[in-house]
């Protein structure tokens, strides 16, 4: 895994899901300027009390919302909304239009990773991770 940089790097997290909120909390507490975006402000409750970044309530599919988050200056973008299609679209949008150099996307359907053939985009597949832990649990038992 890449080490987070301590300097002026900025991270934009889209989707304050369990995963999104945990990553945002971690990166903020590591001293990285962090911005989190979600449509539903109540989802920001999932953030750790140590989170000191920015909150933006809005739809990340709207250009206006991404501009408010200064996406064009972000060094890193984490995309973890609850919807795979939104995640795929946003990943293409932030790399294609806003030239974000490093993007991590969460997908439930790991086959859609085939649509993200860009070296700047890394995919976290929850199904694959669960499968791996299943396998390792079974391996321990045998």
């Amino acid at each position: 895994m890449r080490k987070p940089r301590k300097s002026k790097s900025t991270t934009v997290v889209i989707g304050s899901s369990r995963l999104g909120a945990s990553i945002a909390s971690m990166s903020s507490m590591d001293g990285i300027y962090t911005t989190i975006i979600d449509k539903d402000p109540s989802s920001f409750k999932k953030l750790d009390s140590g989170y000191s970044g920015l909150f933006i309530t809005g739809d990340a599919e709207e250009t206006e919302t991404l501009r408010k988050a200064h996406i064009e200056d972000a060094k890193e973008c984490i995309i973890a909304t609850g919807d795979d299609d939104t995640n795929v679209f946003l990943a293409c949008l932030v790399t294609g239009l806003y030239k974000v150099p490093y993007v991590i996307v969460r997908l439930r359907d790991e086959r859609k990773a085939a649509l993200l053939n860009d070296p700047r985009i890394k995919v976290i597949s929850t199904a694959m991770l669960s499968l791996q832990s299943y396998k390792s649990i079974r391996a321990l038992e045998e």
Binding site: D84, D85, V88, A114, N117
Partner: peptide, 13 residues
């Protein structure tokens, strides 16, 4: 819109 985007991308790529 994002569904249409994904459908077109699957189709083309």
């Amino acid at each position: 819109d994002c569904e249409n985007f994904v459908v077109c991308k699957i189709a083309k790529e």
